[in-house]
């Protein structure tokens, strides 16, 4: 147990050091990412103004708050892309990982967790700058702030497990990009990334509740915006835990089957 904790801490420290070496690259990346929420923000603020000040319970200032937190959540949501598995398997990187006495999942999880601290630190100045331009309405209470912080990490953990599971399909077929594209499209539509879910028709909101996507994305944002009651907020954490454990269960199951199937290039 102590060994595992040590491993995590070292790996996270490594990630922080590596990523701070390339502040410019990280910022370029973030700026490219800002374009998307700013577009949504402008469009929906225009709609809100046209409709006499608010739409679906959101004023332009609410939209500004939504999409500002969006940037942080989006970055926290970034995990190992399922497309990476093709390289891992094809080039035999995985074989190297398998020689270590610890499951490769730990290394990845720890590395990305460390990177998240860099992301949070870089988000702060960006958020301050954008606040001056778009004037968000963001005034969370203490419990909302605490639960938001937990939900932020919970969402990361959940999405990490889900995408690991998705990526492992690569063990069985190499024509995976169609499946991945479909997954990411559903995620875009039903996570609250495109638009706050309360602006969607009833049926779409029901679908979104049953799918995992919203719990990693829209839910933490709505939480800090004060759109949820304490009960709803706690329920959300429970749903995150449920999906994380479910995904983890299938990851373990699939991993065992995959290891029987896997033979590296050159083996």
């Amino acid at each position: 147990m102590k060994g595992t904790i040590d491993f995590y801490l070292t790996q996270m420290k490594l990630a922080v050091i590596v990523q701070f070496q390339y502040p410019l690259a990280n910022y370029f990346y973030m700026i490219g990412m800002i374009a998307e929420p700013v577009i949504y923000l402008v469009v929906w603020s225009t709609v809100a103004v046209q409709q006499g000040g608010s739409v679906g319970g959101y004023t332009p200032a609410d939209f500004a708050a939504y999409y500002l937190v969006w940037i942080l959540v989006r970055n926290m949501n970034i995990v190992l892309t399922p497309y990476a598995w093709e390289q891992y398997i094809q080039r035999g990187f995985l074989s190297m990982e398998l020689l270590r006495p610890i499951h490769p999942l730990h290394g990845q999880l720890a590395y990305f967790s460390g990177w998240k601290f860099v992301v949070i630190v870089m988000w702060i100045p960006l958020a301050i700058l954008l606040s001056f331009i778009f004037k968000p309405n963001l005034d969370p209470t203490a419990w909302q702030l605490i639960l938001f912080f937990i939900a932020l990490w919970g969402g990361y953990l959940m999405r990490f497990m889900l995408l690991w599971l998705l990526g492992m399909i690569t063990f069985w077929t190499t024509r995976v990009s169609a499946i991945f594209e479909l997954y990411f499209t559903l995620e875009l539509l039903f996570s609250g990334r495109l638009v706050p879910l309360s602006l969607m028709p009833e049926w779409a909101q029901t679908v979104a509740n049953l799918m995992p996507f919203k719990w990693a994305f829209g839910y933490p944002i709505e939480l800090i915006l004060g759109k949820l009651t304490l009960q709803q907020s706690l329920l959300g954490l429970g749903v995150q835990l449920f999906w994380t454990l479910l995904a983890l269960f299938f990851v373990r199951l699939t991993w065992r089957a995959a290891m029987k199937k896997y033979s590296a290039v050159g083996a």
């Binding site: 469009v43 929906w44 225009t46 709609v47 046209q50 409709q51 739409v55 679906g56 499209t185 875009l188 539509l189 495109l194 638009v195 602006l199 969607m200 028709p201």
Partner: peptide, 19 residues
């Protein structure tokens, strides 16, 4: 195309014209 049309449908669900 689906994402694009869906996005437009959401907007015009709320308003008749955009700018």
């Amino acid at each position: 195309l689906v994402v694009g049309v869906f996005g437009l449908a959401l907007i015009f669900n709320q308003t008749a014209t955009l700018a």
